[in-house]
Design a protein around this nucleic acid. Structure first.
Length: 423
RNA sequence: GUGGGCGUGGUGAAGUGGUUAUCACGACCGGCUGUGACCCGGUAGAUCGAGGGUUCAAUCCCCUCCGCCCACCCCA
């Protein structure tokens, strides 16, 4: 075996189709119910797009981007996420001239150069929703609600929403100052990783996995105590709605999590994550938040926005635990009893397919082997095409998945054949 | 980038310093030359991850490398 899928990539095999379809369908249908429309942007963009939006000093940009110089000498990157791409498209196509907000959703592969582990790949899939052009907490609620409906629809258990507010940019700077002041007192107690975090991204101290740091974090200043009154009001209104949702639907659980900060630079105010308690360290199956400044940064008019991205692999993983069964994908296998009937079998296969009967002509082998073939691929039926049948313009239908008796049907009576195969 | 675990037919597993390297499932053929599944019989398929070393001998012991998995970092 000379060639293997690249590290962090994998193949989605036929047996996985059912479950992947199920997830995608749930995403698309739910988003459409809320008036969202599909948008598809290129898999690669100007590297600068991501540097400006995701944040130059974030890990994603610093070490995880698949960047290369194309033959024209431009620096190109495979998209590590798709909010930036959607915003670029929004501006470039003048969608801000339409009635706002624009309600958009996307689905497709993303690329991040990381060490793979469970629930993490170098090429992975995200479904995401972006509501662009409305600053009210109502839209924050809307996207959170969409996410919830999808997860619920897929019947994923043990899901919780974590939510926090980072305030606006100015609030955040003040807050980071406070946070550093606080942790400075404990700097010598911090483990190595966290000393590093203290320097590079103090917010991350809050979701450290180190026990000591977790302990210290308990009394750390909270973002909510430092955000502007507008941000605070926004947040509280949103919480009220979540409370309402919780009272209507007790399976919806949420927690205001002061330690939730999230890693992309563009978030402001609301940030949230849905986590699963059974997914281990990669428990985040979906994350999002508000990113009001982003469109402007990219050269568009000042346009507030909110959205989320869902990790399809993580959802599929969750679903795989309750295993979906694969049922028959083929209706009929034509068994060719005499080789000289091959031509006529071809015609019959054509007729079948034109009538939406999924048909395979058995390989050139003994009758027995052809039957085994039909059985092995899980066909609903075996159709015998032999001299006896053709002389009378008939075919024999044998049912492979029930004890129903074999019958002869007029070869041209496709309707009956179809009916007989469908029950 | 750092740490841990693991690499044996297609898949999942045994195994030993000297064996024709074992077993199950799967695949293929046959058991009625016009009938699957169950059953029975048979066939094919592994340079035991790669390279080097120790040894009379290495799949097994040692080293190096590669790959996969898991965790950290970070994120969906």
């Amino acid at each position: 075996m000379n060639y293997k899928a690249q590290r962090g990539t994998y193949d989605i095999l036929p047996k996985d189709e059912v479950i992947w379809n199920k997830v995608q369908k749930s995403c698309f249908e739910t988003a459409k119910l809320y008036g969202y429309q599909f948008i598809e942007t290129p898999l690669f963009e100007d590297s600068k797009l991501f540097e400006r939006t995701v944040g130059e000093s974030t890990d994603i940009v610093e070490k995880e981007m698949y960047s290369f110089t194309d033959k024209g000498g431009d620096s190109i990157s495979l998209r590590p996420e798709n909010t930036a791409g959607v915003c670029r498209a929004f501006i470039e196509n003048g969608l801000h001239n339409n009635t706002l907000p624009a309600r958009l959703f996307y689905y497709g592969p993303m690329f991040r150069y990381e060490r793979p582990q469970s629930g993490r790949y170098r090429q992975f899939h995200q479904f995401g929703v972006e509501c662009i052009g409305d600053s009210t907490f109502e839209t924050d609620y809307e996207v959170i609600d969409i996410a919830w409906k999808i997860l619920k629809n897929l019947d994923i258990k043990g899901i919780k929403l974590n939510i926090n507010s980072l305030g606006d940019k100015e609030d955040r700077e003040i807050y980071i100052g406070k946070l550093k002041d606080y942790f400075k007192n404990y700097i010598n107690d911090l483990p190595k990783v966290d000393k590093l975090r203290f320097e590079r991204s103090p917010l991350r101290l809050l979701d450290s996995k180190e026990e000591i740091t977790i302990k210290i974090s308990e009394d750390a200043p909270k973002t909510l105590d430092y955000i502007s009154s507008e941000s605070k009001e926004h947040h509280e209104n949103l919480i009220q709605k979540l409370e309402k949702l919780n009272s209507m639907d007790s399976s919806f659980n949420y927690e205001v999590n002061h330690k939730l900060v999230r890693g992309l630079d563009y978030y402001n105010r609301t940030v949230f994550e849905y986590t699963s308690n059974s997914l281990g360290p990669q428990g985040v199956i979906l994350g999002g938040g508000r990113y009001d400044p982003l469109i402007k940064i990219l050269g568009g008019p000042e346009t507030p926005a909110v959205g989320f991205a869902m990790g399809i692999e993580r959802v599929v993983n969750e679903l795989n635990k309750n295993e979906v069964e694969n049922n028959s994908h083929i209706d009929a296998v034509l068994i060719i009893v005499d080789e000289d009937l091959r031509m006529i079998s071809q015609e019959i296969a054509n007729d079948f397919r034109e009538n939406k009967i999924k048909t395979i002509i058995a390989p050139k082998k003994s009758i027995k082997a052809q039957m085994r073939f039909a059985n092995n691929i899980n066909s609903k039926s075996a159709i015998f095409i032999g001299k006896n049948e053709i002389e009378n313009n008939k075919i024999s239908v044998k049912f492979l998945q029930s004890s129903r008796e074999q019958i002869e049907i007029d070869r041209n009576n496709i309707e009956e054949i179809k009916a007989v195969l469908n029950n």
